[in-house]
Nucleic acid binder design. Sequence first.
DNA 1: CTGAAAGCGCTAACAC
DNA 2: GTGTTAGCGCTTTCAG
Lengths: 318, 318
Amino acid sequence: MLNGKANKYRISEKTVKLITEEANSRNYKPSLLAKGLRTQKTNTIGLLVPGIDNPYFANIASTVISETSRLGYTTVLVDTMGAPDLERAGVESLVSRMVDGIIVVPSGQEPDALESIDRNRTPVVLIDRYFEPTALPYVTTNNYEGGLNATKYLIGFGHRDILCIRGVPHSMPARERERGYLDALREAGLEDRARIAGNDFSIQNGYLETKFALSGSARPTAIFAMSNTILLGTIKAIKESGLRIPDDISVVSFDNYTYLDYLDPAITRVSQRISEMGALAVKILLQRIEGTGNDDAKIQLSPQLIVCNSVAHAHGEK
Amino acid sequence: MLNGKANKYRISEKTVKLITEEANSRNYKPSLLAKGLRTQKTNTIGLLVPGIDNPYFANIASTVISETSRLGYTTVLVDTMGAPDLERAGVESLVSRMVDGIIVVPSGQEPDALESIDRNRTPVVLIDRYFEPTALPYVTTNNYEGGLNATKYLIGFGHRDILCIRGVPHSMPARERERGYLDALREAGLEDRARIAGNDFSIQNGYLETKFALSGSARPTAIFAMSNTILLGTIKAIKESGLRIPDDISVVSFDNYTYLDYLDPAITRVSQRISEMGALAVKILLQRIEGTGNDDAKIQLSPQLIVCNSVAHAHGEK
DNA sequence: CTGAAAGCGCTAACAC
DNA sequence: GTGTTAGCGCTTTCAG
């Protein structure tokens, strides 16, 4: 009754005022739980990310949370640790809590579970990653373009031996960045020199792959790190080997992050438009929840190359 | 009925099996909403932080989320942006969602609202910050010790002109770190040289205060930055001025963070025990929720000084 | 052992 | 204009 529908039911103003005052004085708060149970609408959405500790996902969470809260929704955050079973459990818990919708950075390879949730009246929107043949709407970076441009940029500085250190191989971002990398090489007639290694978006992976690459005789003159985490490992390994960036080896990374400007040298990177991505995912989800418009938005945002000082001209030919 | 209380009610095994199978085949999921309404227990806790974008708070959130989920609870994360009114609104929303308890990094100066929530059957535990005279349990770093040791460390390198760049002045961590700073100077007979500036845990604040300090004639030989954000601003200003760390000016920061190892030089800092802090806050909260033990735990964790390369001996006396 | 019924706090429909 | 009631899906009590 205290929900602003007074004039809809044509209750007298006096009564409204009386009740409102009494309610305030006793500091009454309606139970959103009961309300949700009754109306089948909780004004809550679920957000699942594989590691809130990763600044990239923290950024996504930050924009999603502030955007939903601006629009009158609450966000329940679940950290899936990148584990498909935790993701599944998280989704189920959210559904049985009757969230109105779900935004998820999917970790698994199988869209089935999420698609079935989506069909069962809880709209799902993918963010950052998506599945190849999927009915689910998504918002992601144009990772192909990112990989292409990063590699072209390196080639433009005369690099011909460019190591690409990859994240989780089956994930769409990794696949697309890799495809961009390969196409850039191909355009330059360097396809024979392609060198792709690694299998995880982690510091450890960046470290090991770089260490390995630097130990061999055919040392790359540039490295394309597919994420900020991989980058850190790469930098560590490079430092340990006594080489300097960019004089001895050039580096380009993915992901934008304040700290990258403070490294020495500041790291040239492909920046994703995170706040736009978050805002769009929320917008699409709420539209679907509220039943207006566009049920299958599939959006790719163009990344931006942020040029810093981690790339120099390749020295000699091998 | 499908809650494992079968033998408590002595239901026949056959029936149980039958129902269970049927439930699974139809893929039945109990409504946690209805359950919560009925039992007044939602197995959900609320977590409020002032900015999930800040790696420090992202770390806290990460440990709190993984710890609660390990113990069978779900976490609802609210980003208060450091605004007391958003915090209040967030807390109210959580309460009316019947969360079983709340963990909060409080932004305001007034404990009243939170204390009243706590008295009204929703236990509240403070983390990172707390209020001076409060009944609310808290877990925090021994910030006094952190400020003391950071400053002593600098003094040990012969520094006598140490600028302390402060975060939000009324917040307990800032006050305690400041007190530690002052006591360290006093012990060394340097109390006349105390220099405290700034009023926010932000890059901007660090930048401006450093810029200002470097522009004057009485340039400090060392800076104690009270947070990782302040530190970034400080570094930027130092770089712009053409000075080098640590040769021309030494720097010590607060907060541990992977990236600090990758800056050049790596930054000596006072590291807080975030995972212990998060785990303890969860433990205390769940104990209070489940009615066992210790209603007013007030815990301070000793920080650790992580020594890197951002401090050198002071050159000459002024 | 099993079935029926009350009630958590709310909203929407319907009677007054 | 206003008061009453059913029912959201669950748990728990009480009869059978």
